[in-house]
């Protein structure tokens, strides 16, 4: 019971890291990027390739798993994404679905369609017991990393110049430009960081969620759920939502496996209908 709770928390934390970039692009920049999972997948595969082909240690690959997707994100933002900021949500959705399909097929082509295994170092394997509850070492590690990242993110958004500039740019681009804020650069950076975080999540999650070319499609809806249920006003809503969804999903799959992902989808529809701004949204 407590183990399920713990697994759910770990899963939720991971979902938060994976989805946090989307929470920013969708929530703040109002861009629907369904291809967010492709960046996560990129991070996962970076780790796999570095470990399998170059024999790097798991931990050592994590920074690269952040940087590579961030770089790809920055390039794509500058070239393809930017012209679509003021297009309709439908166009953004179709465009990013196109990217998803391309990335799925491309990874399949280069890496094969099989599940990739990530061997975490031995000191992260196994579990330890606290008061009769089995606690996975790797899951504890993931939770730890995620907490650090979440705190950092919240700090950057709420307390730094970067964060306040971003919020200003999102509120009113013209005014922000007038104040000398480089909106374009700010958006590129934000997009890159969001993509990098997804990549980091993808690398961390490869062991727990599995990693194969269909990753972006499988988890697309989860990311969207985190953001819609959490609301689009900040990061705290998505954080709580991610934890909630993690716990509900793990518990649901354990206790009522036949219901599959039913619970989560139904939850999303209900929230969208009755609280279209999200469960934890503050009226703006």
């Amino acid at each position: 019971m407590l183990t399920i709770l713990f697994d759910g928390v770990a899963y939720g934390m991971l979902l938060f890291i994976l989805a946090s970039g989307l929470a920013v692009t969708l929530g703040l920049m109002n861009f629907v990027n369904l291809a967010h999972g492709s960046f996560a997948m990129a991070g996962g595969y970076v780790t796999v390739v570095l470990m399998q082909r170059y024999g790097m240690g798991f931990l050592a690959t994590l920074p690269v798993a952040f940087l590579m997707p961030a770089l790809i994100g920055a390039v794509l933002e500058r070239t393809l994404y930017r012209p679509l900021y003021d297009k309709s949500h439908l166009d953004q959705v179709l465009f990013s679905i196109g990217l998803v399909f391309m990335s799925v097929a491309a990874v399949d082509y280069f890496m094969g369609s099989q599940q990739q295994l990530v061997h975490v170092p031995s000191w992260l394997q196994g579990r330890f017991d606290i008061a009769g509850t089995g606690i996975g070492r790797y899951r504890s590690f993931v939770i730890g990393v995620c907490i650090v990242v979440a705190v950092l993110l919240q700090f950057v958004l709420a307390r730094t110049r970067f964060g306040s500039q971003l919020r200003a740019a999102v509120d009113d681009q013209r005014v922000a430009r007038g104040l000398g804020i480089e909106v374009g650069l700010l958006f590129t950076l934000t997009f890159a960081v969001g993509s990098g975080l997804a990549g980091l999540g993808g690398a961390l999650g490869a062991e727990m969620l599995g990693l194969d070319p269909t990753f972006p499609l499988k988890f697309m809806i989860y990311f969207l759920i985190v953001v819609t249920v959490g609301g689009r006003a900040g990061l705290i809503g998505p954080f709580i939502a991610a934890l909630l969804i993690g716990i509900v999903d793990v518990a649901g799959k354990y206790y009522v496996p036949e219901a599959g992902a039913f619970l989560i989808y139904a939850l999303m529809i209900v929230v969208l209908l009755f609280r279209p701004q999200g469960l934890f949204a503050v009226a703006r």
């Binding site: 949500h89 439908l90 219901a259 039913f262 529809i269």
Partner: peptide, 25 residues
Amino acid sequence: LRGTDLTRLMVTLGVALLVFEAANS
């Protein structure tokens, strides 16, 4: 009936996923 294009995109996607899960289970 209600909501923005974005909510409609997600609700329709959600309904389709529900039906898929139902058929699968």
